[in-house]
Simulated scan of single mutants.
Amino acid sequence: MNIEVITLNKQDTAQAAQLGASRVELVSAMEAGGLTPSYGTLKRILPGAPLPVHVMVRPHAYGFVYDDEDAEAIAEDVQMIQQLGGTHIVFGCLTEAGKIDESLLSRVIELAPDMDITFHRAFDQTDDLTEAYHTLVKYTPHVSRILTSGGKDKSTEAANELKQLVALSEATGGPRIMPGSGINTDNLAELHKQVGAQDYHIGSGVRTSGAFNHPLDPALMDQVKTILGK
């Protein structure tokens, strides 16, 4: 069972390791939904990180359809992460038609063939989740998991959809499904009972006062580990 938490800086990341997180998703600008962290932040975290750090690669908050300039920025960020010792990224890209942008995804994989990729919640904005999943199966093992709220705003609103995606993952051997968005200690047990995923992504749900400007809460992390039997 894997617990991924969102972190914003070196202190956050160290605390997440101390509290028993399996890995972290490192981001900046949570008010914009999470963007690529700065070079300075990455330089202070990636070398010698105490647990796997999955770095968000998202150049802006204006959707997940990227033009040529965006693609160049993404490529340079991926190379920077590699140079600093990073081996995991969180990335997603779509076409104007609401499909997976296979051309850009392939370019990222070619740039960093040994990089472990989580395809993020851009997945939830595709026009057909099942079709999008089958597209991403082609990129296994480079794309090893999908962060998703089942096409809804919150994971708790999409238990049936998430359960179906987990079953699809198990049947195909494709990317694992990692539910995220809106998960907290009040709803995790029921969601896990319904969905049966092996990975869960939690953000403000394990923060004191439920806010990203507050630290991770040891008591809430303990509750999450108890619920998931970790």
Rank of each mutant, 00 (worst) to 15 (best):
6 I>E: 00
28 S>A: 14
23 R>Q: 15
197 A>L: 12
35 L>G: 05
71 A>M: 09
227 I>D: 12
144 S>E: 10
221 M>Y: 07
135 T>L: 11
84 L>I: 05
114 D>W: 06
186 D>I: 02
176 R>D: 11
175 P>S: 01
22 S>F: 12
169 S>C: 11
143 V>R: 08
198 Q>E: 15
55 V>I: 15
174 G>D: 04
162 L>E: 13
196 G>A: 04
163 K>R: 14
222 D>T: 10
14 A>Y: 15
130 T>H: 13
119 F>W: 02
185 T>P: 08
115 M>W: 04
4 E>R: 01
85 G>S: 02
8 L>Q: 14
63 G>L: 11
76 E>G: 03
72 E>C: 05
28 S>G: 13
195 V>R: 01
129 L>A: 11
222 D>Y: 06
221 M>E: 14
194 Q>P: 00
212 F>E: 07
55 V>K: 01
127 D>I: 15
139 Y>Q: 10
186 D>C: 07
34 G>C: 03
207 R>T: 03
51 L>D: 10
13 T>H: 06
163 K>F: 15
100 I>H: 03
54 H>L: 15
222 D>W: 05
191 L>W: 10
168 L>K: 00
41 T>W: 03
30 M>P: 06
116 D>G: 06
30 M>R: 05
148 T>A: 03
215 P>E: 08
112 A>C: 03
90 V>P: 00
183 I>D: 02
88 H>W: 14
76 E>R: 07
132 A>V: 03
159 A>R: 13
88 H>K: 09
163 K>V: 14
161 E>H: 12
142 H>P: 00
81 I>Q: 01
173 G>A: 04
127 D>P: 00
